[in-house]
Design a protein around this nucleic acid. Structure first.
Lengths: 329, 329
DNA sequence: AGGGATTATTGAAACGTTTCAACCACAATC
DNA sequence: GATTGTGGTTGAAACGTTTCAATAATCCCT
């Protein structure tokens, strides 16, 4: 591997000259510049980015940590992050938090491999993030509550979202509504449930869940919960699933049992992930402003990088998207 | 930022000792090891990964280059790559080829920031890849044909896939089949078309496309092409879209015009991306072994990294998945 | 008590850059 | 002809690690 030393030697100049020349510094005369560049191409020289970053103490890249690179992760959100990053002439790399303490994510959080980081990964521990705070290293965490000097929180109004979902069903005349929850320790889940309850109490309906409906935030979770519901005899007239994936699973379970959504049971989800508009029936759901979250997160990173200290907390609105999986009673 | 020097000083040892201690070398006595570690936690020391990588000339990470981090990129494929990478105790980072010559992708290809790279990005030029070949730097390119010392090709049997799609329609009695192509300079597109033609000629059907049906590999592409088809008067009895995204757009266009898929027209796609099974109707398509592609690609990287020179070319099989968007005539 | 063998510790070089401060040659100014 | 200036070039230090080779400390045998 040719280094800049080799280039300098071949061009017959000092290594500092070679460096200036390759970075197109105005100090260098056109003649030597040409010599150096010729030498570089002749040796097929490629700069070592690690050395450069180390010296400059700056990587010009920001990291995006996702719970799983392959998951149905919010592609809209990534787009938001990416566009802002690109327009600031930074690089963006995505890595996964899979693997716990020895995951790539931790490596990037701690080892100064990026200039700032956006964390969207519920499976990465708050503790790890707190351990990674250091001066001048902005961290934007999505969907969690964490306070430290350089940490910025961006989240979505889950409570209002849950409220909207429930209100929609109530307005449509449903009385017997069931909340199909995700993991009980998930903050998202709790807040959505909270909003759901708020809507019910507003109508003075007392919600008494007869059994514990909570599963994973996955298709299987929704599927099995729906099976459970059907086994309990009396069907509710509507369910509100804590996320879209669960709703997909639930709808599938109902349909497999010959039930018609929305005629036999209305279903509303949460997230508005891309595929739910292609379902049969298309899913009524609560939309998160995913693109906006992403671009906001990235903007905040750059603001912090530029020395402005942005506000530490942002909550973005949610919106009800009515499709055909719900019907008036 | 505390460096190892600070740790050494605080612990009262030489920096080499500190380094050995932090890396848990057996040379160091338990006593000093403890001292060093205490000092490290007290200073909240975090190692600088760049410095380490530079010194070791090894990053222990492999890069995955995608055409667009946010796209509906093959999440199955990524999963394959990720699992293999993780089990080899390497890190995986994904980056986008958006931005052409100054994209993050190029940075990672050229600047020695990763130990190997997998390229799945049609929009990155062959030339760039060729410029990045260097000894001991394995590059796996997916879905393109490129020969150089350290380049390995992995692709899918597009020809046979196209053949399968066409044969399925022919077997179902369709005579008037239209090929809805993607970008004409796309190799995937060409090969799928080739397979399509092979099936027709096998039945001695001469395919004379009355107009040029080619668009982008996107939903819009399929949508507008379908509109075009409908404007031409006589509807074919089936179409074969060069990828699923286009098929989705086409189905949508047909349905908007009141046509029934598959009763008025059969549609088959290519790729078997996740959402097509949730469409209404679920799409008949040709499945690519995405997971296998990913894990194969990663395996090959590690093989090369271990000094074995693997075969330079791999072609994976495709498979027809019959769903409800096609019907017998 | 002396000498070899073992174990712990350390100084210094190296990885490949960038950049400061010094230097040089030469022209311009008074 | 001495000073000042200028544009071009360079040596050396620095970034934060790891690791070799050398030294220092400890131990065990006779």
């Amino acid at each position: 591997m040719a280094t800049i030393k080799d280039v300098a030697k071949l061009a017959g100049v000092a290594v500092s000259t070679a460096s200036y020349a390759l970075n197109n510094s105005s100090k260098i005369s056109p003649g030597t510049k040409r010599k150096v560049i010729d030498a570089a191409v002749q040796l097929n020289y490629q700069k070592n980015g690690l050395a450069r970053d180390l010296k400059l103490n700056k990587t010009q890249t920001i990291g995006l940590i996702l719970s799983d690179l392959s998951g149905p992760f919010y592609s809209e959100l990534i787009k938001g992050v990416q566009e802002v990053t690109l327009s600031n002439e930074y690089d963006l790399i995505a890595c996964s938090s899979l693997g716990g303490y020895s995951s790539t994510a931790v490596k990037f959080l701690k080892e100064k491999r990026v200039d700032g980081v956006i964390v969207l990964a519920a499976n990465i521990d708050d503790l790890i993030i707190m351990e990674s705070v250091r001066e001048d290293f902005p961290i934007v965490v999505l969907d969690r509550e964490l306070t430290a000097n350089s940490i910025i929180n961006v989240s979505v109004d889950n409570i209002h979202g849950g409220y909207l979902a429930a209100k929609h069903l109530l307005d449509a005349g449903h009385q017997d509504i069931l909340f199909v929850g995700g993991p009980p320790n998930s903050r998202d889940n709790q807040l959505r449930y909270q909003g759901f309850l708020n809507a019910l109490t507003e109508r003075e309906i007392h919600y008494t869940p007869k059994w514990n409906l909570e599963g994973k935030f996955t298709r299987e979770g929704g599927y099995y919960t729906a099976k459970m519901i059907m086994m309990q005899g009396k069907l509710p007239s509507a369910i509100f699933c804590a996320n879209d994936e669960m709703a997909i699973g639930a709808v599938q379970a109902f349909q497999e049992s010959g039930l018609q959504v929305p005629f036999d049971i209305s279903v509303v989800g949460f997230d508005d992930i891309e595929i739910v508009q292609y379902m049969n029936p298309p899913l009524t759901t609560v939309k998160q402003p995913k693109y906006e979250m992403g671009s906001l997160a990235a903007h905040l990173i750059f603001q912090a990088l530029n020395g402005d200290i942005p506000t530490r907390e942002y909550v973005l609105p949610t919106e009800l998207i009515v499709r055909n999986s719900t019907i008036s009673k």
